[in-house]
Design a protein around this nucleic acid. Structure first.
Lengths: 244, 244
DNA sequence: CGAGAAATTGAATTGCGTCAATTAGGGTGG
DNA sequence: CCACCCTAATTGACGCAATTCAATTTCTCG
């Protein structure tokens, strides 16, 4: 239970609802089946059926979709505390691939586990639905970025959002954060070519806004970057628990 | 209850889980507070707090985000049976605007209603989570389309997906469907300019694939369009109830 | 120390946006 | 029933942001 109280997921859900001992116990129960995956080896392939869901304990993962023409679109990155493949369980077939970007550790979650959680603790169900909604809000913001921002603003916004997410689980600040992504990851996520990603990064660096280099993101001018990106931090900041 | 059995939402959820009398009753109870909204008058503005959620009974709505520079990105369209603003309730502040495209009718749903549903019928909670996941799958597909498809494939894919959604609630077929959207709606949804939307539509029409005209979409060559779009209908076709 | 991956930079190409103007519908009031 | 207006649809010309192709250079690690 002590372990559960410090798991990244518990930390995140606690921002939404004050959880009782019983609810914390149920949540802890979800972390039973722990598994590890190596960087670069897909956890699930697109189209694979009967996929499990996971709660990411440590490391980074990206979820992506492959196009018939071979190009890849990264839909989202998962950082510790995030659900992974929840949709695969519900829709029965994985419409994504999942690739660990570094070596990771995750807890397996089955459909039956979820049903049990819902039956025992409806408030926890609400909290999980909240987490899912928050993730979707980020996907939506991602969509808006690709649809309506030019490459520069898109990149800036992405780097800011990532920083905000990591800060929520204690892995970053306004100064910067560690980031294992390559420029190819950025390209696949932002709908740009790797070449253009490189050019955009150079411009942001030369403008003194942000540096992406050697696995670390340094935010030289947080306010300037926020303005340049049109970033609204509000939608990620949960001001306090909704359910008491 | 007879009414509930024929509501679009019930119809949709029944594709996911065989619902008991009790569950159908609870679902029917959600349709209590009915409200109407006029076409073109926003139901909610971006940033507005304490927003309610709705279940759309009839008509079309679009959810969108406004950029600081005034451009608009339509994130999704809601058709009968879809939830509307579920995220607004959970995240407490509406990060979207909602605009009825035609006059609509919708049932208001409060946070408390949802909690009650979850407490009384966990399987129904799973079904609602499934519906939410399915919606997110569509947003994801939308994201992929904007990020990695050229204008033609993007349009084709969009029109096919819309058809599949409408077919699920009995409002369309492989032949085509009624569609009240303007080319401006399409442009805002697909991340294109209205001018280019027009050009793309012309090309699709001249290639004998699909016609978008006078509030009706006619699919002249379903298979050809599917191939051209790289459309995978599987992710929307629930082959059968997951929960029995 | 060699090999493959990641990062960088230049040059040529193009899909799509912007600007601008015209045509077609659809409602409204005289 | 027609004149008017406003919105949607349509088409052409031009420019630019981002892609593609191609070539190095710099890392990383076995």
């Amino acid at each position: 239970m002590v372990l559960a109280a410090t798991s990244p997921l518990t930390r995140k859900l606690s921002a939404f609802a004050v959880l009782s001992e019983a609810e914390l116990a149920v949540l802890a129960g979800l972390h039973g089946r722990r598994r590890c995956f190596a960087a670069g080896r897909d956890m699930a392939h697109q189209g694979q059926a009967d996929q499990a869901a996971y709660i990411l304990s440590s490391g980074w993962v990206c979820s992506y979709k492959l196009q018939p023409d071979g190009t890849r679109q990264i839909v989202d990155f998962q950082v510790p505390g995030d659900f992974l493949g929840l949709r695969s369980v519900l829709l029965r077939t994985s419409d994504h691939g999942f690739e660990p970007i570094v070596d990771i550790e995750a807890a397996e979650v089955l459909t039956g586990d979820l049903l049990e959680v819902f039956a025992q603790t409806p408030r926890l169900a609400m909290a999980i639905l909240w987490a899912a909604s928050r993730d979707e809000a980020m996907v939506v913001e991602h969509l808006v970025g690709i649809g309506r921002r030019d490459a520069g603003a898109r990149m800036a916004h992405f780097l800011l959002e990532l920083g905000a997410r990591l800060a929520l689980v204690g892995l970053g600040s306004r100064e910067g954060y560690d980031c294992p992504l390559t420029q190819y990851h950025l390209a696949d996520a932002l709908g740009l070519s790797a070449v253009h990603v490189n050019r955009v990064l150079r411009q942001l660096r030369e403008n003194g806004l942000v540096t992406f280099r050697e696995g670390h993101v340094t935010l030289h001018d947080y306010r300037g970057l926020v303005a340049f990106a049109g970033f609204d931090p509000a939608y990620l900041d949960q001001t306090g628990p909704l359910l008491t």
